[in-house]
Nucleic acid binder design. Structure first.
Lengths: 330, 330
DNA sequence: GCCGCTTTTGTAAGCGCTTACAAGGGGGAA
DNA sequence: TTCCCCCTTGTAAGCGCTTACAAAAGCGGC
């Protein structure tokens, strides 16, 4: 592979390897020497060996990223935010999928530790921080995204699920709806969104018309919506994400209900397709890229010995045509 | 970090480091000794240092993956296929996004080479293989996905764009449509799909009713469809991907055309949302996971000194309600 | 012209692991 | 019992790089 080593550069430039290393890494070297070394290195096509560098310095310039499911559309944006700040700082990263399997997650972490990652970014649900600390005696700096851990003193970046759901529900309320159903999602995000939904209703002195359990997929949303529609008694549905909202569209169509005339719908995520549905879906836009960027900056600042603050990032309510003033109840 | 080294294990087990290394890696060691060493290693929480291993063996057990855009929904599945076979074989991988920027791609490759990846999986459009070989004197085994290179003798895995588009068009033809429009996509995939479309028509002795350029996004599909609908003269549209097909749905709705009564639509990709649109979209299902899996196996076999064969994977036509027998022309 | 100081450069010791090579031990054949 | 061979283990030399430490070289001030 990387044939040319620092030794050959040293020889060709007529200096010692120490000088080459210093010239390459900005150490103290006479300007003329540095220039000569750099020139020779380029001519020879020298490429440093990160493995050797890592071994010698104890720093791998790599951060590990663990996500539950890489197929989510928002994950790509998050990863991009992370990559932007990390690569700008000269760091590489290795990303892997835990698929929500604790055993698998532990194995991935093992492998990342073996690769001497300098920091770990954990995304989404997974083993609690305490469990990690117990299992891995020696852990690099941790940064969490959409995961519990602020209590354990770990910088955590998340979106304001509760507050955003609250605002979405308020939007429905101010359109005159008083009988609102909810299709909830899984895990913490699902619970928080439901909490925001319930709080908005409670403040208005209302009860939820109905709450059905979904699983964040189109199919789950469809099934939940069918169940809900069979019973009726509401004029709007707040689905915990856009994919389930799409399931609602389908169920409503099949049941002969028109959106938004008979039924208003709000989703969560603002996926690419949401703006192009008929009618375009009102939803909450997640700052996914920003989440990644913030986490990346947190990694850098922890590596610099600082203690970054956790943050909860805002979601923007995007009003589209799927919400209308209260019409006939379903 | 990984405090415990092979030396401490050796000392605690009363053997030499060589024996520990052999015990750990399945070298020739007396069974009793191996057991004792393994036990001690576990008790001490020993974790091998991949960097040091890599330096010593010259093999990093890592493969590099470069993709143009990680936000695509199919990419996640492909990555999963790749990861499944690679991690099972004890390989890690580092994935990065080129964002279709040649300079950026070259920089990423540089970094991967510095990390001594044992193989490179290049996905989607990017620098031609010859250019890579010219720029990087020393390149590890290459495997390509959805990218030109079979000519250069590099194992390449792709989906049958042309044949699949041909079949989709045939489906439209056999539903009685004779005036069919196409919204084409970008790059090679776009060209191949268009070619399949044209071939099917030519075989039937027909001309395309119209061909508009799209960019694979909902917005692009929407704009193209509006332009097409303004001129009219067709009863079906074949969009080069599902996202653009969704744009067609929107444009058709706004123009007052009903799908599939007035207009039949076929997409490409079978994204998660496609089955839940109203009406559900007929489309072509891509074997994305399989693509990744095959590429992973190719990597392994090349590392084993073999020469894997390139392959073109089939797409399945999924017939749904967006295609009807020819109705009134738009 | 000599001294002490500040650069600039070289020497060599690792970082943690693998692996040729050699040595020690034990068993079977003679 | 002796010899040979094979199995098991240890010694030590790197892999490519960084970095103390020390030596060399250059400088101004006296």
């Amino acid at each position: 592979m990387g044939r040319v080593t620092i030794y050959e550069v040293a020889q060709a430039a007529g200096v010692s390897v120490a000088t080459v290393s210093r010239a390459l890494n900005g150490g103290p070297v006479a300007p003329a020497t540095r220039e000569r070394v750099l020139e020779v290195a380029r001519r020879l096509g020298y490429r440093p060996d990160r493995l050797a560098q890592g071994l010698a310095t104890g720093r791998s310039r790599t951060v590990g990223v663990v996500i539950p499911d890489a197929t989510g559309p928002l994950y790509g944006q998050m990863q991009r935010g992370l990559a932007d700040v990390l690569t700008a700082a000269g760091f590489g990263y290795i990303a892997t999928e835990s698929r929500r399997d604790p055993g698998r997650e532990a194995a991935l972490l093992d492998e990342m530790l073996a690769r001497k990652v300098e920091a770990l970014v954990l995304v989404g649900s997974g083993l609690p921080v305490e469990a990690l600390r117990a299992r891995f005696s020696t852990l690099p700096p941790l940064v969490l995204i959409e995961r519990e851990g602020a209590a354990a003193g770990v910088p955590t970046y998340q979106i304001e699920n509760e507050a955003a759901a609250y605002r979405a529900t308020r939007a429905l309320l101010s359109a005159g709806h008083t009988k609102i159903a909810h299709i909830k999602g899984l895990r913490r995000a699902g619970r928080e969104r439901e909490a925001g939904f319930l709080r908005a209703l409670a403040e208005a002195g209302l009860e939820p018309a109905a709450v059905a359990a979904g699983d964040f997929t189109e199919e789950g949303g469809y099934r939940a919506a069918r169940a809900l529609l069979a019973r009726g008694g509401f004029t709007a549905i707040f689905a915990a994400n856009d994919r389930m909202a799409l399931g609602v569209y389908r169920a409503a169509f099949e049941a002969g209900h028109k959106i938004p005339e008979d039924l208003s719908v709000v989703g969560f995520d603002d996926l690419a397709f949401s703006a192009y549905l008929t009618p375009p879906l009102s939803t909450l836009r997640q700052p996914a890229y920003e989440l990644g960027r913030r986490a990346g900056e947190a990694v850098l600042s922890m590596l610099g010995g600082k203690t970054p603050e956790s943050a909860v990032l805002p979601c923007a309510y995007v009003a589209r045509a799927s919400v209308a003033r209260k019409g006939g109840a379903v």
